[in-house]
């Protein structure tokens, strides 16, 4: 009995120490993608799918190098990333400001809350025709759509979190003459830094989502355009390439934001 318990404890410690090791975590996280890649390679080599249904991994790679050779791939990636970052930055800034206003002012909450809630309920694609009509098919309409997508998660988390800032801390700061913007930047915003970051991470995911919505419908460049263009031309290899690139870019930007979050939470709590 005691021997069995001992083994169990050892296994547990080994597992937990393995999970806290950076390299082990990386390798374990890469395990599933490698398995998927392997299954993909094997099934295409065995001829389970036709090349149009599912091209081999090598074909996707070849499509990538062809687009690189034609100087197109990096342009697609660059323009898409630029749109996401721009829309995310502006949307997040607006989300923090309006979230602070609604979270701290009762009157603003009563007056703006219902309207913002209703606008949030509008599905992303519903904005596309209107934005194109107003801003034409250019960068503005796309960045605006992404901005809308990034705005709401930040707005919601910030406005909710600000309502639950420690009342004692705020009162103490007010007793020392802090008020308005100074009170916001000294006490209230630092107190909700963890919430701001979880909002930002949701917003970043939304930004990539809305990017594809914007580029699917009206674009001549970008990863969303690559998707539709490949669909019309029956280029499943490029389609898969675009999807993989979206996954990788989304994961990388989220990981970078995660690092910033770690630093900020340590700094502000």
């Amino acid at each position: 009995m005691s021997a069995a318990t001992g083994t169990k404890t050892t296994t547990k410690t080994v597992t937990s120490s393995l999970l806290s090791n950076g390299w082990a975590r990386w390798s374990l996280g890469l395990l599933l993608p490698v398995v998927i890649l392997l299954a993909w390679q094997l099934s295409t080599a065995a001829g389970v799918f036709s090349a149009v249904q599912l091209p081999a991994p090598r074909a996707v790679l070849a499509a990538g190098s062809e687009l690189i050779a034609r100087n197109e791939l990096f342009n697609h990636i660059a323009i898409s990333t630029q749109r996401v970052l721009l829309g995310f930055a502006v949307g997040a800034a607006l989300g923090v400001s309006l979230g602070a206003l609604v979270g701290l002012s009762k009157i603003a909450e009563v007056m703006l809350g219902p309207t913002i809630g209703a606008l949030r309920a509008v599905p992303s694609l519903a904005w596309v025709p209107l934005l194109i009509l107003w801003m034409k098919i250019g960068e503005d309409s796309k960045v605006t759509l992404i901005l809308i997508g990034a705005f709401f998660p930040v707005f919601t988390t910030v406005s909710l979190a600000l309502r639950h800032v420690d009342k004692n801390l705020v009162e103490a700061a007010r007793a020392f003459g802090l008020k308005g913007v100074k009170l916001l930047t000294t006490v209230q915003l630092p107190a909700v830094v963890p919430a701001i970051f979880s909002g930002l991470r949701l917003a970043l995911a939304q930004a990539w989502l809305f990017l594809v919505a914007a580029e699917l419908i009206a674009a001549s460049m970008g990863l969303g355009f690559l998707l539709t263009d490949s669909q019309y031309n029956g280029r499943t290899d490029r389609l898969l390439l675009a999807i993989i690139l979206l996954a990788v870019l989304g994961k990388i930007t989220d990981a970078l934001l995660g690092l910033a979050e770690k630093w900020a939470v340590r700094r502000w709590s």
Binding site: N168, L169, E171, A172, A173, A175, F176, T186, V187, P190, R267, W268, S269
Partner: peptide, 14 residues
């Protein structure tokens, strides 16, 4: 003209 010290320190943790 006043300054207060409360029962709890109420210091900003960050």
């Amino acid at each position: 003209r006043c300054a207060v010290a409360f029962q709890e320190p109420r210091l900003l943790p960050w």
